[in-house]
């Protein structure tokens, strides 16, 4: 599938910031089933950005704006060609041994409720079990915007029973790690189908299965990623896989606007 993506993030301040700095994980990687045809990140001072790969293999840019400003817009756009690999991610650049992804974080730390979730899984087969986990999470936590926030943990979301894709992914990761499996958080884009562009910015989980490799699970949509998914960045949780992490000095009353448009491209458009 040919997918075109436009992703605009805009920060505005009532009182200007004296400086700000951003880590961007806004460059999708190439691996089996995902090829980048064109990609551009635009923002002030991006030419001076430091480009490097982080501990989870993401291509990062560090962009520093060392002057007073009251608005910053970060625009990423391009087109990506994808193939359905039944959710398997192969050929991606890996920096850390997979066992590192067994580490729980503040957001994924399990408690009895996650342990009960795992204990309740009935499937004998290890992959079936993960599918069952994905399904149970979708049933237990209904999709609702605004019930949780960026700092909500897996345990909190499970208890509340409401959340968004980030919460679904955290619960899945927490449970998978509790089962002894390496698991990671993936942020990316999703072609929702039709003309709608809702939840085009998406997140899901991946878990490592011995002998098979990394396999994606999207509890929010109850499926393993297909060619409608574009992987952007991964990490131990939403924080370390965030497309944009920023810090500023000064700057009062920040307003954040995010606009994401993901569309299937016809091959005619592509030419």
């Amino acid at each position: 599938m040919l997918i075109s993506i436009g992703h605009v993030t805009r920060y505005t301040y009532a009182l200007p910031a004296t400086s700000s700095i951003y880590t961007l994980r806004l460059t999708p990687p190439t691996f089996e089933g995902q090829r980048i045809l064109s990609w551009r990140v635009e923002m002030p001072d991006i030419q001076q950005a430091l480009r490097y790969r982080d501990a989870f293999g993401n291509i990062c840019h560090l962009v520093s704006i060392p002057r007073t400003h009251s608005e910053i817009a970060i625009i990423a756009r391009g087109s990506v060609e994808t193939q359905d690999k039944s959710g398997f991610v192969r050929g991606a650049t890996e920096v850390s041994p997979t066992r590192v992804y067994r580490r729980q974080t503040d957001r994924t730390a399990p408690d009895e409720s996650i342990a009960d979730l795992v204990a309740g899984l009935k499937s004998p087969d290890r992959i079936d079990k993960l599918h069952e986990l994905m399904q149970v999470i979708g049933e237990r936590v209904t999709y609702e915007i605004g019930a949780t926030n960026a700092h909500t943990s897996a345990v909190e979301a499970l208890k509340d029973g409401r959340g968004v894709c980030q919460d679904h992914a955290h619960i899945f990761i927490s449970a998978a790690r509790l089962m002894g499996l390496p698991a990671r958080y993936v942020s990316g884009y999703f072609v929702t189908g039709g003309d709608t562009a809702s939840e085009a910015q998406h997140a899901w989980a991946e878990t490592f299965i011995d002998g098979l490799g990394w396999l994606g699970f999207d509890p929010a949509n109850q499926l393993c990623p297909t060619d409608r998914y574009v992987r952007l960045a991964c990490g131990l949780d939403a924080a370390s896989a965030a497309p944009i992490t920023g810090n500023r000095r000064g700057g009062v009353d920040e307003v954040l606007d995010v606009f994401v448009e993901v569309q299937q491209q016809s091959s005619a458009q592509q030419q």
């Binding site: 501990a55 989870f56 920096v95 041994p97 370390s240």
Partner: peptide, 26 residues
């Protein structure tokens, strides 16, 4: 992480240790 692979130190003691900083990998 050869020392873990060699079984000389339990994996969990490193990976789940709060003093281990995964961002330092690589």
């Amino acid at each position: 992480q050869e020392i873990i692979k060699a079984g000389k130190i339990p994996e969990e003691l490193v990976i789940s240790n709060s003093a281990f900083v995964p961002e330092m990998m690589g």
